[in-house]
């Protein structure tokens, strides 16, 4: 394609990069949370472990929300379209 203009706007590049980084962090956060919830359900964590993991996940979620706000992203913006495989993150997840 020769008609599409290449935009090398500094802000756009940084925003796109932040979006990609935040998307990957969000993926890891969701995976960790899912793993933690499964282990809680199975009951193989001590109460102290549950408390520590829960706090960590909660702080991570808060921090994610802050970063999203700073860069003006909605939760649904942090996702990648993998074409025929669908989206990287489940659409309804917060």
């Amino acid at each position: 394609m020769t008609t599409r203009r290449v935009e090398l706007d500094q802000d756009t590049v940084e925003r796109d990069l932040m979006k990609l980084v935040l998307t990957l962090i969000e993926l890891l956060r969701q995976l960790m949370e899912r793993q933690a919830l499964r282990r809680v359900d199975q009951g193989d964590l001590s109460e102290e472990q549950e408390e520590r993991i829960g706090l960590t996940l909660m702080l991570l979620a808060d921090r994610m929300a802050e970063l999203r706000d700073r860069y003006g992203f909605e939760p649904g913006d942090l996702n990648l379209d993998l074409g025929p495989l669908g989206p990287l993150l489940p659409p309804a997840d917060r």
Binding site: E33, L37, D41, E47, G54, L55, L57, M58, A92, D93
Partner: peptide, 30 residues
């Protein structure tokens, strides 16, 4: 969904465990 607020520690544990319980319930509801 109402804004995420810091869960109050309950009798059965601290803030971290309350958070995990709430997320578990939300996920099951989803």
């Amino acid at each position: 969904k109402e804004e995420r607020t810091t869960p109050a520690p309950s009798a059965s544990g601290g803030v971290g465990r309350a958070y995990l319980r709430r997320r578990g319930a939300e996920r099951r509801a989803d």
